[in-house]
């Protein structure tokens, strides 16, 4: 990985941290979107698309309802794809390595997110005190500070993750686990994950069952007779 690639990935980390919950929430932070972007940055767009879809399928069942704790899908998608793409080049065991990195990144990112929310509590207290004194600019300043801090945390956690991936990839290179899971096996595993997540989150019953059965027939026919890359 070159310095320019690491810089671009770190900037992407800052952006997706903000998109995940503090700002706009356009969903560019989802693994399905982050994967292809990481692939484009690292010069492997097709692998980025595959890994984006795989890591999206893992994150499908996670719902940010209320103040619930949930894994950081953005960081998981970003670092998981980086581990998969750089691991493949180093002869490690990229699929298991990439999913391990994604799971760990999701947990760490959740912790960083809660840290940011706690820190936001102090910012909010200052904003309220200033407004009580008559300052109308305080909320805007508070928002600018919180967003800047969020971007810095996003960049920092991404840069740290890139360092860990580089070290881990070097340690795994040449191990007995050398070789990589083929794309077809990943497709099978991700399809199973997506199907289960869909039934669990959306539920079945009534017309949804009919839709699922029709979908199964369509999906089978599409792949069996349509051919896939």
């Amino acid at each position: 990985m070159t310095g320019a690639e690491a810089g671009a990935l770190t900037a992407l980390g800052a952006l997706v941290f903000l998109d995940q919950w503090p700002a706009v929430q356009t969903m560019v932070s989802r693994p399905i979107v982050v994967g292809p972007i990481v692939g484009a940055i690292l010069g492997a767009p097709a692998d980025g698309v595959l890994w984006g879809a795989v890591l999206e399928s893992i994150s499908l069942a996670v719902q940010p309802v209320g103040a619930a704790r949930y894994p950081d899908a953005a960081l998981a998608g970003l670092l998981g794809t980086v581990a998969a793409l750089t691991g493949a080049g180093e002869g490690g065991f990229p699929a298991a390595w990439a999913v391990s990195v994604a799971v760990a990144a999701g947990a760490v990112g959740d912790g960083v997110g809660r840290f940011q929310r706690r820190w936001n509590g102090r910012t909010a207290a200052v904003v309220r005190a200033r407004v009580a004194e008559g300052s109308l600019a305080a909320p805007g300043r508070g928002i600018a500070i919180a967003l800047s801090r969020g971007a810095a945390l996003g960049a920092l956690q991404t840069a740290t993750g890139l360092g860990i991936i580089a070290t881990g990839g070097a340690l795994l290179a040449g191990s007995p686990w050398a070789g990589q899971l083929d794309a077809r096996a990943l497709q099978v595993a991700a399809a199973a994950m997506a199907a289960v997540a869909g039934v669990r989150v959306l539920g079945l019953g009534g017309r949804r069952t009919t839709a699922a059965v029709l979908g199964a027939l369509a999906g089978f026919a599409l792949v069996a007779w349509g051919g896939t890359p």
Binding site: A185, G198, G215, A224, T228
Partner: peptide
């Protein structure tokens, strides 16, 4: 959204069956 999602989940299941069958192992896959 839920009906569309159920269709997509079913399609993922069907695609998974087709992929695993075509991966070289037939019923084993």
């Amino acid at each position: 959204a839920r009906r569309g999602g159920a269709f997509a989940a079913g399609a993922a299941f069907g695609a998974g069956v087709a992929w695993s069958a075509s991966a070289g192992g037939g019923w084993g896959g």
